[in-house]
Simulated scan of single mutants.
Amino acid sequence: MRRIIIALSFVVVAVAAVNAQSGVYRTLEDFENNRLSYATNDGMNENKIRFNEFLSKPYIVVKQNGEKIHVFKDEIYAYKNKGNIVRTWNFTQYCFLEKGPIWIYYKDVYASQPKGMQRVRKYFYSTYGKGEILPLTLHNLKKSFPVNDLLHIYLDAQFRNDADLARYDNYANKFKVNHLLEKAGMGLSKR
């Protein structure tokens, strides 16, 4: 009977970690397997995570079982905050959107507009999970895949400017640039 109770408690903990709204992905492998460390839901009072996004501190504060732990953002792959996944690259936070031939991220920044400062969404990408995060531009995509002339032709034919790269294809349920890369069957190299 005791073994059954212990086994059931492990199942409950595993289900809670998979359905958790917040937690830390220590490695890329943890991210790909949806394995959260310090997993918690907002309703749980004994375990809390303070992500320090507003103050841009270099660490996350985890309160678990009454103990405070500082986890430095540069020592983890990503973290999940209320269902949103945030990857830190060179001490800058990027929100993860989509995994495909390229991994797409965004960051909201303040930019000078004719009517003052406004929040603008900027899009970024990496060519693989641990890759460098670059601005999502036609020029950068061509530099990322320099020997693929056919890809360059498809990109020029499909996208008039850099802003078009951030368009979402509702029919394919993915970003148009990833849909193009998949359909073109480019055999893009991933590291």
Rank of each mutant, 00 (worst) to 15 (best):
P114M: 09
V13Y: 03
V61T: 15
G187R: 08
E182L: 14
D164F: 00
D162E: 09
M44K: 10
V86R: 02
M44E: 15
N81Y: 03
A111W: 00
S56P: 00
A7S: 14
R3V: 01
K143F: 05
A14D: 02
D42R: 09
T127L: 02
L136P: 04
K82S: 10
L134E: 10
S37V: 02
N19F: 06
V147A: 12
T27I: 03
I60S: 07
V147H: 09
L134V: 07
V86L: 09
A78G: 07
R119V: 12
A184T: 07
K174P: 00
Y25L: 10
K190S: 13
V13M: 12
C95K: 13
V13F: 04
Q118E: 12
K183L: 15
T27L: 06
L97E: 11
C95N: 13
D162V: 05
F72K: 04
T88W: 01
K176M: 11
N170M: 05
Y171N: 06
N33T: 11
P135Y: 03
R167E: 14
L8W: 01
V62I: 15
I104S: 04
L188G: 02
N52R: 08
A163Q: 12
Q93M: 06
Y38A: 05
H152D: 08
K82H: 03
A172S: 13
L134S: 10
I133W: 04
S189R: 08
R35P: 01
A16V: 05
K48Y: 04
I6R: 05
A20R: 05
V24G: 03
Y94W: 08
L28Y: 10
I85Q: 06
F91Q: 00
P101S: 15
L165G: 08
G66N: 06
K82F: 01
N90L: 05
T127I: 11
N45C: 07
A172Y: 08
D42V: 12
I76C: 04
G43P: 00
R191E: 12
C95Y: 07
K183R: 14
A184M: 10
F54G: 15
L8T: 04
V13E: 11
K190Y: 09
Q118T: 10
A17F: 01
E182I: 13
F54Q: 15
W103P: 00
R167V: 09
I104Y: 02
R191S: 10
E98P: 03
N81L: 10
F10W: 12
N84V: 13
N148D: 15
A172C: 07
G185C: 04
V86P: 00
S112A: 12
L138S: 07
Q93D: 13
N34K: 08
Q64G: 06
G185Q: 07
M1T: 14
G116V: 09
Y154A: 13
K99I: 05
F91V: 00
R87N: 03
Y25Q: 08
D164E: 05
K107A: 11
N19P: 00
V109E: 14
A157L: 10
L136T: 14
W89P: 00
I153R: 11
P114N: 08
